[in-house]
Simulated scan of single mutants.
Amino acid sequence: MWKKKKKQTDSETNDFTTSISDLMAGLLSIFILALCYFMLNYQTVTSKYAGNMELRTQMLKDVGNDLQRQGLQVHIDTKQGVLRIPESVLFESGEASIKPEGQAAVTQLSQSLYRVITRPEYKEALETVFIEGHTDNVPIHNEFFQSNWELSTQRAINTWNLMRNDIPDFNSQFNTRGEPIFSCSGYAETRPVQDNGLDNNTEEGRAANRRIDIRFVMMPPKDANETAGR
Rank of each mutant, 00 (worst) to 15 (best):
A50W: 07
S183F: 09
P220T: 05
V63L: 04
E101C: 02
T159I: 03
V129G: 01
S93F: 09
N225T: 13
C184M: 13
E54R: 11
T128P: 03
I32K: 14
S152T: 10
E95Q: 14
E127Q: 13
Q43W: 03
D10M: 11
T190Y: 15
M24R: 13
Q146I: 11
R155L: 00
F216R: 02
I131L: 12
Q58Y: 13
R115L: 05
E12R: 14
P86R: 08
R164W: 06
P221M: 08
T128V: 10
F170S: 04
L33N: 10
A50Y: 15
I117N: 02
Q173P: 00
K48V: 15
S147A: 07
Q73L: 07
K7C: 01
R210M: 10
D169R: 04
T153Y: 12
A228D: 09
N196M: 05
R155T: 00
S152E: 08
T44N: 06
N196A: 04
R211M: 12
A207I: 05
A96T: 01
W160F: 13
N52A: 10
A34I: 07
R155W: 03
K6F: 11
A125T: 06
I117T: 02
L198F: 12
D195W: 06
M163K: 00
L40M: 08
Y42C: 11
K48R: 15
G197R: 10
K99N: 11
P192K: 00
Q111F: 06
S147C: 08
L83K: 02
V116D: 01
A50N: 15
Q68M: 09
T9S: 10
L83I: 01
L67C: 01
R56W: 07
Y114P: 05
E226W: 07
S29N: 13
A34N: 10
V45Q: 14
Q8P: 01
E204F: 02
H141T: 09
D10L: 15
R206M: 15
R191N: 15
G26I: 02
D66A: 14
A228W: 11
T17S: 03
H141E: 12
K3T: 09
C184P: 08
L151C: 14
N200D: 15
R84S: 14
N14F: 09
G178Q: 04
F170W: 06
V82M: 14
Q70A: 10
A188L: 05
Y114F: 14
V106Y: 00
I131K: 02
E101H: 07
N171L: 12
H141G: 06
W149V: 11
T190C: 07
A156L: 03
N175K: 00
L72V: 00
V138F: 03
H134K: 08
R115A: 01
